[in-house]
Design a protein around this nucleic acid. Sequence first.
DNA 1: TTCACTGCAAACCTTTTGCAATTCT
DNA 2: AGAATTGCAAAAGGTTTGCAGTGAA
Lengths: 151, 151
Amino acid sequence: MTLYTEKALSILKNSGLRITKPRRLVIELLAKTSRSLSAYEIKEALDQDGHKVDTVSIYRIIDCLYENHLIHRVLTTGKVMKCKLENEHECELNQSDHCHHFLICQQCGSVEEVHCPGIDSVVSAMEEASGYRINRHYLEFSGICPQCNLV
Amino acid sequence: MTLYTEKALSILKNSGLRITKPRRLVIELLAKTSRSLSAYEIKEALDQDGHKVDTVSIYRIIDCLYENHLIHRVLTTGKVMKCKLENEHECELNQSDHCHHFLICQQCGSVEEVHCPGIDSVVSAMEEASGYRINRHYLEFSGICPQCNLV
DNA sequence: TTCACTGCAAACCTTTTGCAATTCT
DNA sequence: AGAATTGCAAAAGGTTTGCAGTGAA
């Protein structure tokens, strides 16, 4: 069982939510997938493993995971992605206002969640210059990942 | 006729496209709207002005305007927004790989297209650190605009 | 006049809702 | 046992396609 699976299940349990078979299946799929997935892609992947889960349930499970900060919604792709787990620190999964940035490979579709050095001061400067009270920002990079660059 | 309308129409014409009534109506609506709009919102707004334009046509017009770099797609809202026109410079509308950043007010929904100082070096640093060849980035800020802050 | 563009009908895909049946705890 | 969750059916949205008719150049 991966760290993600383990953590995710325990967070659900601690929130008084049930560990059902469909939920576990979706979590395990997310755990082993380094791309973002749509509801339908999740359904297809589970089907191919011989697990029939209704599309409606997928949507509800996605909502549940999102509310519990176990997945991100990637704007560029319109799909969802597991939250990154730091081995060292106590997991930041359950924090809401932490900011998340993504590197998305246009070729293989892999998504990497990254910390982006320097972005905070850019946001502050923008806040200052614009007069907006900025409470959230979305930053996503599209390109070609190192692996695909080799080919 | 606003600068946006004028420029947009001339760009269409120069591309060999026709200036039809529905296209002009959509362009004029975008010109006077400082929010992002969905296809359905565009249809509703036109209807209320007494102009019946089919939803299908709205979609096709949106595609056309997007291909000609006359509108942006705002990821946070999932809607479209007119491209900003600089009075001073020769218009940058028709450039494709120019990067665009948005300030979105969570209260009134207004969207402002901004240049973001400092972001280029952040992108370069990320490119360096990650090994990705980054060719595009998306940066959107959510918050409360100066006007809404006063209330 | 001609061809691009629109409108209409219908299909398609995605997401949501209500309710009865299931299954975790 | 009891309550949360799932599956099913159906509806509600959003978007696309094909084709005949319209209208801009």
